[in-house]
């Protein structure tokens, strides 16, 4: 049984990897790959009871590709795979796709991302599965029988399928750097107004903080790119990623888009690209397009600082615990920890 599971997983990965190479999220492209591999045949040759057991196995295996930490494109492939397997299974009535409550938010977010990018086929397939009552709304992704494994055998995830870390790029974006430099300026001004003489003992802040921060994140990004250069994946490129990377990315996205069923007017196209870009980069990192709106809805840091800084020192301290400066100082440890947690959760 365990061998069977491994083989099924490997067949699914082969299909998704071919799909990934097409750089597409179109169902048309997916079904092409499906036919090319004659994937429907995976159900053939099972008998009676075996059929149902195999349907269960193959649907459970495919489900994982529909969820984080896989990249948006792989998750699209995972959804298409589930739909196709569900439709082609030979047992009647069909086995359902199991969907756990804890994964529902991820599915809704995925749907929103697809909607925003006007990927009509993705949304259609998802809605169609709901219409077909293809889901079991469950507590957990699989049945649990307290099966402790003798050998600790973590099922390995394909590195190339997984969304790359993008927290630093997301955090250190232009908007944030601008605010930071404003605060820096404000702080220097205040300081000079307090101490008339230029005293070296109050020179506590780094003069070159902003350019340094910027170049560090750039370096991180470049290193990351070099790391994964063999698979040609460039999913993390938001924020301060270099101009060249950005344009390359936009090009590719435009390529994907050009094949979409987009009816939206040309005028907002670039806007939509931005949207897709956000979606693609932030799949693993948590709520995606929320980031843009929450950042905007909060009063700007500059405004908050202006309000607080001249009242009292304590207030400033208090305010600073919720500012991005605070986030910055904990950047090294905090997001890393969270990432580990996520990995852990997702096998």
């Amino acid at each position: 049984m365990d061998l069977n599971r491994k083989l099924v997983k490997s067949d699914c990965e082969e299909l998704l990897s071919r799909f990934q190479k097409t750089d597409s999220v179109r169902f048309e492209i997916f079904s092409n790959t499906w036919r090319e591999m004659k994937f429907s045949h995976i159900f053939y040759g099972t008998k009676k009871r075996e059929k149902r057991v195999f349907s269960r196995l193959v649907l459970d295996t495919a489900s994982s590709f529909f969820l984080p930490p896989y990249s948006f494109q792989i998750r699209v492939g995972g959804l298409y795979l589930l739909y196709s397997l569900y439709q082609c299974q030979t047992t009647s009535p069909p086995e359902q796709i199991r969907l756990a409550l804890k994964d529902w938010e991820d599915v809704k977010k995925f749907e929103k991302d697809a909607l925003n990018a006007q990927h009509h086929d993705i949304v259609y397939i998802l809605h169609r599965l709901l219409f077909l009552r293809a889901f079991h709304f469950t507590a957990m992704p699989t049945l649990l029988v307290f099966q402790k494994k003798r050998k600790v055998e973590r099922s390995v995830q394909r590195e190339a399928f997984i969304e790359r870390t993008s927290r630093p790029q997301e955090l250190i974006n232009t908007e944030m750097l601008e605010e930071l430099s404003n605060i820096h300026e404000l702080y220097e001004k205040l300081k000079t107004s307090v101490c008339s003489t230029t005293n070296s003992s109050v020179n506590l802040s780094r003069k070159d903080l902003i350019p340094q921060l910027c170049s560090t994140v750039m370096n991180f990004y470049k290193l990351q790119q070099k790391d994964g250069s063999d698979d040609g994946e460039e999913d993390s490129g938001e924020g301060t990623s270099s101009q060249q990377d950005c344009s390359k990315r936009a090009e590719r996205l435009a390529f994907i888009k050009s094949k979409a069923y987009g009816e939206a007017p040309e005028a907002c196209k670039s806007r939509r690209h931005r949207q897709v870009e956000v979606d693609l980069t932030s799949n693993e990192a948590g709520p995606s397009n929320m980031s843009g709106s929450t950042r905007i809805s909060k009063p700007s840091l500059k405004a908050r600082t202006n309000e607080n800084v001249h009242i009292s020192g304590d207030m400033w301290k208090e305010a600073s615990t919720t500012t991005m400066i605070n986030c910055l100082t904990t950047l090294d440890s905090a997001p890393e920890k969270q990432k580990n947690l996520k990995r852990f959760k997702w096998r």
Binding site: L7, D11, M37, K38, H41, I42, Y44, G45, K47, T90
Partner: peptide, 13 residues
Amino acid sequence: PEVVPPNSTLKTL
């Protein structure tokens, strides 16, 4: 559908 298709590239088959 009762017969395993010949010459499949799928490892499962």
